[in-house]
């Protein structure tokens, strides 16, 4: 390939990377500007909707407290999400290995999802106390379902011919799982992880709403009680930041682990074709 082409390609890849960061930042900036303008023009009182700048100022003033609450919430998010991955993924493998397990387990899984988490959160508090455990439980309950469902879809989504091929090489179920279905399922698994990590943040807040004296959820509840608009929004900003950062960590991991998948590739797909 001519070197000028390589330079062009490198440049266009770099440009794509830059746009990946620049464009969302600009979109958010525009939204914030519109928000500021609306607050000014319509003279919205602070307890209803504070101006973004006021929220930022409040963030600066209260950062130590916000950081503390945030760390507490982050703990239940990460522990609950990890539990979902560690339990959900093996469970999905098990379901795919055995039809009977699938038949017996799936009704419970689906039922567990039709129960509103807000409704059972109080029961969890009764069972598990006021500590961090009931929050982790809510996070787990809300986030394991997308993980298990998408992992099952991924594991099952392998062509029959591919399975025949490795069986003709003498592979039995464990090897088929490990060498074929497992890797093939990674893209779907990450789809599930991405949904689950966002749900996890929601779950942690739900858990804290029901019974907590710590965490961003608790802060939201008390500042709403005080009609403290800028503190509510400062807490929300922290929550959003947490969600976005966690989501992008999962996306980063996805890029690292499945560089081969269509959804992740950025280079030309026909690089070597002759």
């Amino acid at each position: 390939m001519p070197s000028s082409w390589n330079v062009f390609k490198a440049n266009s890849v770099r440009r794509e990377r830059a746009l990946d960061i620049l464009m969302p930042v600009m979109a958010v900036a525009v939204a914030l500007m519109l928000w500021s303008a609306a607050v000014k023009v319509f003279e919205i009182p602070e307890y209803l909707l504070p101006a973004p700048l006021d929220v930022v100022v409040r963030l600066g003033e209260e950062w130590r407290r916000l950081a503390d609450e945030c760390l507490y919430t982050l703990q239940s998010v990460l522990l609950g999400f990890s539990a979902s991955v560690l339990i959900g993924v093996p469970l999905a493998f098990w379901v795919v290995c055995s039809r009977s397990i699938e038949r017996m387990l799936m009704p419970f899984l689906v039922m567990s999802q039709t129960i509103p988490k807000v409704a059972i959160a109080p029961i969890l508090v009764v069972w598990l106390g006021f500590g961090i455990l009931p929050k982790i439980a809510v996070v787990f309950l809300i986030s394991f379902f997308p993980i298990i469902v998408s992992t099952i879809v991924g594991l099952k989504g392998v062509e029959n011919d591919m399975i025949d091929l490795v069986r003709s090489m003498g592979a039995k179920t464990p090897k088929i799982m490990l060498k074929v279905r497992g890797p093939a399922a990674l893209p779907q698994m990450f789809g599930g992880f991405k949904i689950a990590i966002c749900f996890s943040v929601v779950g942690a807040i739900v858990g804290e709403f029901v019974g907590s004296d710590k965490g961003v959820g608790f802060l939201l509840l008390t500042s709403a009680g005080d009609l403290d608009g800028s503190l509510i929004w400062a807490a929300l900003f922290v929550l959003i930041a947490m969600g976005v950062i966690l989501f992008s960590i999962v996306s980063k991991l996805e890029r690292l682990l499945i560089p081969w998948h269509v959804s992740v590739r950025i280079e030309s797909t026909t690089a070597y074709q002759s």
Partner: peptide, 18 residues
């Protein structure tokens, strides 16, 4: 059952993308 002395080629290449 599958034997040691056979190699199979199917209609689609069935390569593993990863």
């Amino acid at each position: 059952g599958p034997t040691a002395s056979v190699g199979v080629v199917f209609q689609s290449p069935l390569l593993m993308a990863w």
